[in-house]
């Protein structure tokens, strides 16, 4: 459990971090909470030449309200999101998801930004940020840009973040309480075999469903959403629509869950998440 040699930099501003990323290119890795990166380094599966620790950049863990949206700094830990009064009031789904991540130690160190950029297919937050239509704000030498959650994840552990870019904040719209996260966890790692985040808008008669853990990248269950648009959310209607939760995706299979079981859980957890969201509304 000894990593290969690396050098370590600890910038104090975003600009400084971007300059370091620009200088070191793909040889550099950004260290946020380190809960995925450090184990990979200790196993020598990851051997970055430079580690850029963004933990000392002031303000990166801020959780605040701005322009009618909730803004979450990339270094906000799962525990901070779980216990934030603002999140509980203005976007409770994120708090619910944060509470289901790993265990207390992981939640105290792990960060939302680190989790999103690492893009583990079993990570919990992606389900929520997809359902919430979050915007992810990236800084680079070219300035900053916003990426919609739906466009952020490219493939397993791959996102649109370029080697010289840094995800610095996530913004989500304020949402009502009609939201729920239902998760089946991989017993060893605590990652999701299937995690479903659902948001129900009773007035607009729409649901938004984000699914993680099932496929190589998280996705919106658009078939489910379409089937329920404008419909009354009765248990039967929801169950029928939820059966479409893995439509068009190629489910992952491993020693913890077969593709068929993941697809099945997608349907069950989607049904449960929507009904739970309805019940909370």
């Amino acid at each position: 459990m000894i990593p290969a040699t690396f050098s370590y930099a600890r910038p104090t501003t975003i600009d400084e971090a971007i300059a370091l990323l620009t200088k070191h290119g793909s040889g550099a890795k950004v260290l946020a909470g380190g809960h995925s990166l450090l184990p990979a380094m200790k196993l020598r599966l990851a051997q970055p030449e430079v580690l850029i620790d963004i933990g000392r950049i002031a303000g990166l863990n801020t959780i605040a309200e701005r322009d009618g949206r909730v803004v979450i700094g990339t270094m906000a830990t799962h525990a901070e999101i779980e216990s934030s009064a603002l999140v509980a009031r203005a976007c409770p789904l994120l708090g619910q998801v944060a509470a289901r991540i790993g265990d207390a130690q992981v939640r105290n160190r792990g960060t939302i930004g680190g989790s999103l950029v690492h893009a583990d297919p079993g990570a919990d937050f992606p389900a929520a940020i997809l359902a919430l239509d979050a915007e992810l704000r990236l800084a680079s030498p070219r300035g900053s840009r916003s990426v919609k959650a739906a466009a952020f994840f490219e493939a397993m552990m791959q996102t649109v973040v370029q080697p010289d870019e840094l995800l610095f904040e996530i913004t989500v719209p304020k949402t009502a309480t009609s939201a729920a996260y239902v998760k089946s966890e991989q017993k060893a790692s605590g990652f999701a075999i299937c995690g479903v985040a659902a948001i129900v808008d009773a007035q607009a008669k729409t649901v938004a469903v984000g699914v993680t853990g099932v496929a190589s990248k998280p996705y919106r269950a658009t078939a489910v959403e379409a089937a329920l648009r404008g419909r009354a959310l009765t248990p039967d209607a929801v169950a029928a629509a939820a059966a479409l939760a893995a439509n068009g995706v190629e489910p992952l299979g491993d020693i913890h869950a077969s593709p068929e079981y993941r697809a099945h859980l997608a349907a069950v957890n989607t049904k449960r998440a929507i009904l739970k969201a309805v019940a909370q509304g």
């Binding site: 184990p39 265990d103 991989q186 017993k187 060893a188 790692s189 020693i255």
Partner: peptide, 25 residues
């Protein structure tokens, strides 16, 4: 839930706590 898994080539697939599930609190 616990089981030690080798694949058919004799590779150990439960070599870390990432994949070997001990009971948790």
């Amino acid at each position: 839930f616990e089981r030690t898994v080798y694949d058919e080539n004799g590779q150990l697939l439960t070599g870390e706590f990432m994949d070997y599930p001990l009971a948790r609190a």
